[in-house]
């Protein structure tokens, strides 16, 4: 346990030192890794812990980003308010969609969510006068402190760490444990008195909120938003991040997100066929390691402990 804490502290120290050691572009990439990791972790709260088929999580990421972007570009209200509005808008949308969707389960849930999410996407995509349509919004003005790549990075790092800590806390709470129970066996959960739908709804709102935070961070890092952020292929990509790292672990999705973002950045240096590489890796993972890479490692580790004990 102590070794783990030390490792986390070391990682944190490296992350803090990063902008001093790396060129600007890589600081930007690191910030993208952080916020994408946050996004994947928020999705995993629903899909890995709750077993909810959240097929269109990118919508909340997108609404978080657009909410903030629109507040910053279209109103004269103070910027921090915009940073709050984005995630809250995402949480609210998540609540509204959730109320409709939780009546259904599994694939039907996912399908209905895809439909609703696509409606949101296509509206943003076509509403030129308000959202900028398929061009999105670029050059979003930020407070001076966040204007530099370094400033944006540290802000992202701080918020991500905070959010991860909060989600870790939630995962380790009675609520989180109950959620795992619902994932494993919703019928049994109801039979011991758990209101399954209410718990799922709360989970969706939490996941949507943190997804929205990730979207807001994207605005800070990239100063732009565009509708592709909430196109459903991106939702699938985030799902894949969870799967790759391991849905039944807390940090797996973060690791998966880092792997995919970095793979895209670096593999695209060497080959224009990086999605082929990703597809092959994924196929192998799904067939041979359905618990994900980190999940597999954890299982091996546990099995090893059990044997030595």
């Amino acid at each position: 346990m102590n070794g783990r804490r030390a490792a986390l502290l070391l990682l944190l120290a490296v992350l803090v030192a990063l902008p001093h050691a790396l060129p600007r572009f890589y600081t930007y990439v690191a910030a993208i890794v952080l916020l994408t990791g946050l996004l994947a972790t928020s999705l995993n709260l629903a899909i890995g812990y709750g077993g909810i088929y959240q097929f269109h999580h990118a919508v909340f990421y997108g609404i978080g980003a657009y909410g903030t972007a629109l507040m910053l570009t279209r109103t004269a209200l103070p910027a921090p308010l915009g940073f709050v509005v984005g995630p809250l808008a995402a949480a609210l949308l998540s609540l509204a969609m959730g109320v409709v969707c939780v009546r259904l389960s599994k694939l039907y849930f996912g399908m209905l969510q895809i439909s609703l999410g696509s409606l949101v996407w296509v509206t943003v995509y076509r509403w030129y006068s308000f959202t900028g349509g398929d061009d999105g919004i670029h050059g979003i003005p930020l407070p001076d402190a966040l204007g530099s790549t370094g400033g944006a990075y540290y802000f992202t790092l701080a918020v991500t760490v905070l959010c991860l800590a909060a989600m870790r806390r939630i995962a380790a709470s009675p609520f989180g444990k109950t959620l795992e129970g619902i994932r494993d066996n919703p019928v049994r959960s109801a039979a011991v008195g758990v209101d399954v739908r209410a718990h799922q709804l709360v989970t969706l709102v939490i996941a949507g909120f943190f997804g929205g935070v990730a979207g807001t961070l994207f605005v800070v890092v990239d100063t732009s938003v565009f509708p592709d952020m909430m196109f459903w292929t991106f939702s699938l990509e985030v799902l894949i991040m969870c799967l790759l790292g391991g849905m039944y672990t807390f940090f797996g999705p973060f690791a998966g997100a880092a792997a995919i973002v970095l793979l895209r950045v670096f593999a695209s240096h060497y080959t224009s066929y990086w999605s082929l590489v990703l597809g092959v890796i994924l196929t192998l993972v799904i067939i041979f390691l359905p618990d994900g890479i980190l999940g597999y490692a954890v299982r091996r580790h546990r099995a090893g402990e059990a044997r030595s004990a």
Binding site: R169, I170, A172, S173, P174, F175, G176, K177, T178, G181, S189, V192, G193, V194, H199, V202, I206
Partner: peptide, 18 residues
């Protein structure tokens, strides 16, 4: 534990340690 938590109506506590 889940059954007990449920009976005690503690399943909505999101910030305490389970």
């Amino acid at each position: 534990q889940i059954a007990v938590l449920s009976r005690e109506r503690r399943t909505f506590r999101i910030f305490s340690e389970v």
